[in-house]
Design a protein around this nucleic acid. Structure first.
Length: 558
RNA sequence: UGGGGGCUCGUCUAAUGGCAGGACAGAUGACUCUGGAUCAUCUAGUAGAGGUUCGAAUCCUUUGCCCCCAGCCA
């Protein structure tokens, strides 16, 4: 996959892995991608995924995609497909796809082993009792009255739990560790709980008990021969338990290493809140281009290269960090600048009439496709007497430092001619309906033979040849940096996060564009063709704006 | 308050006892047929206090602040 840049530099995880290889602790690197199929992938997952992927391939190792499907109440087949599709789009490659549920049988055998070792027991307490007896952060918990059951009774009860003899919530299997442990995770953690409904999306009704994360993840890692189980910081306190289980079982022990998760400003990362956002219709769906799900970013026009570059640039560490959304945008601009074709598009048109240009004449002018890439070649654009330019590019009374078109000023029409504004015509309400200009025929192509300069070049389209289009301008979805913290999501939605421009005019070469095509509309920004676009009804999404230093100047002036 | 983790320019991140560097953001300028891109320059940081050392972001002591953990979620 050509769009996977090899990652550079090092970090504490790569150093640890290299050291493990040197010391012989592991001879082959195998990592795993552990998504739970209960939602769509978002930018937060991408960091973890790419660390797993790159750590594997940089060391000649391999990656296993393992779905963590241990809770039938939350997981759906739909997400199993969507996750693979999104991860593949990013360019991640795995040697095989597995499921935690593939190992339910073996895991059950291991549980029996622990019971026989006297290290696990069936607890009949209600969930409330279990919770109450766990103690608090500062007080030890109380042992369950069922903690002392015989191995035989535990074995019998576990078998019957598995067969479905008991209702949900009536019993659990717990590890017997230490109810007074200062780390709450070690206070006799639950291993299996009883769940009858709904049936599991892969194993159906075969099982009535399902393992908890702690009693599944490490065991699966071990069974699959994972060398490094890389995860986020919140699992750090689970590591003692991860190691305890495998030690008691005497099984192969992978190394768990934790790193800080990605926090991105203005992005919603909470799966629960994200789902609610979609379900309440505040956004168009999981691929609404304002979201930071992978499919939304794809629809917005973000590229795998840009996203991977972004992850590379933020680094890997253990600090709690908040990444500025501007960094992501910078990566997107970087990639798109190098690779996207330039087009002329006028989003808020105003009519320009070239008074001294011959009626009916149409000229074909040469326009460069991508100044960053000579191999992209050039194209022809039609020029004629009546044009559209951007409303912003004309001012009847210009502010200081405004170099664009205004009465008496001369500018260049990109790849065409120098024009000078002579007058404007207005309707009864005083709105400008036409800007009248004259052109200098000797400046054809954009250069004046007498060597005179203009301070500004503006884009344009020929009215007779332009295509009609709808342009969707996106901005950050939220008004606050951390929308996950907002009590009421609806109240922090940025009302200007989507502005639909229904009357855009674009150059004729855009006629055959299809879903996902990416362009730079010169002087405006990067855009891509939306999936709802059709030949007679073009729709473009704004991926990201160009940097706009005039907007900055103007803002300062106000 | 118990346990675990963290604290370096505004934001991320390097420096592994020896010149605190890079990126994004910001500022200024050069260049330009995109007020884009590019290039150059600048601004800006070791949480506080002690100590060890010729030398400390790094080692020690101590204080402060932030994050995570009391699901039969992952």
């Amino acid at each position: 996959m050509e769009n996977i840049p090899s990652s550079t530099g090092t970090d504490f995880i790569r150093e640890a892995v290299a050291e493990d290889l040197r010391s012989g602790r592991f001879s082959k690197i195998r990592t795993r991608l552990p998504p739970e199929p209960n939602g769509y992938l978002h930018i937060g997952h991408v960091k973890a995924f790419l660390i797993d992927y790159f750590v594997a391939i940089e060391n000649g190792g391999e990656l296993v995609l393992r779905f963590d499907d241990t809770n039938p109440a939350k997981e759906e087949l739909e997400f199993v497909h969507a996750i693979q599709e999104d991860a593949a789009w990013l360019g991640i490659q795995w040697v095989k796809v597995t499921y935690a549920s593939d190992y339910f049988g073996k895991l059950y055998e291991w549980a029996i082993k622990l019971v026989k070792l006297g290290l696990a027991y069936v607890d009949d307490q209600t969930p409330e009792e279990v919770s109450k007896n766990r103690g608090t952060l500062t007080e030890a918990g109380n042992p369950s009255p069922w903690r002392g059951r015989s191995v035989e009774e535990n074995l019998d009860l576990l078998e019957r739990m598995k067969k479905g003899e008991f209702p949900d919530g009536s019993r659990i299997l717990r590890a017997k560790i230490d109810m007074a442990h200062p780390n709450m995770v070690m206070r006799d953690p639950a291993m299996y709980r009883i769940i009858h409904e709904p049936p599991h999306h892969r194993t159906g009704r075969e099982w009535c008990i399902y393992p908890m994360y702690d009693w599944s993840h490490g065991q699966n890692d071990s069974m699959e021969g994972i060398s490094h189980s890389l995860c986020s910081m919140e699992y750090e306190i689970h590591r003692p338990l991860y190691e305890w289980f495998l030690q008691q079982l005497g099984e192969f022990m992978p190394r768990q290493i934790e790193f800080s998760r990605l926090n991105l400003s203005y992005a919603m990362m909470s799966k629960r809140k994200l789902r609610k956002l979609v379900e309440t219709g505040l956004v168009e769906g999981w691929d609404d281009p304002r979201l930071t799900t992978l499919r939304a970013m794809r629809r917005r026009g973000y590229t795998p290269t840009a996203i991977i570059d972004f992850i590379r640039r933020i680094g890997v560490a253990k600090n709690t960090s908040w990444i500025d959304y501007a960094l992501l945008e910078s990566c997107v601009r970087d990639d798109l600048n190098k690779h996207s074709l330039r087009k002329m598009a006028v989003i808020d048109p105003i009519k320009v009439v070239i008074d001294n240009y011959p009626d009916g004449l149409v000229e074909e002018l040469e326009a460069v496709n991508n100044p960053e890439d000579p191999e992209a070649g050039s194209r022809k654009v039609n020029f004629s007497k009546i044009l559209y330019i951007e409303q912003e590019d004309f001012r009847e009374s210009p502010p200081p430092k405004y170099y664009r078109l205004y009465p008496g000023n001369e500018v260049r029409l990109r790849y065409a001619y120098f024009i000078r504004c002579e007058s404007v015509t207005k309707d009864e309400a005083g709105n400008i309906v036409e800007v009248h200009c004259t052109y200098d025929p000797s400046t054809k192509g954009g250069d004046a033979p007498d060597g005179r300069k203009v301070k500004s070049t503006i884009h344009w389209v020929s009215a007779a040849h332009a295509l009609h289009a709808e342009v969707r301008e996106y901005d950050r979805l939220f008004t606050i940096e951390n929308p996950d913290d907002a009590e009421d999501t609806a109240s922090v939605i940025n009302p200007a996060s989507l502005v639909i421009k229904p009357n855009a005019k674009v150059e004729a070469s855009l006629a055959g564009t299809a879903n996902g095509d990416k362009f730079q509309f010169e002087r405006i920004g990067y855009f891509c063709t939306d999936r709802t676009s059709a030949p007679g009804k073009l729709v473009f999404n704004r991926t990201v704006t160009l940097k706009d230093s005039w907007a900055k100047i103007e803002k300062k002036q106000n």
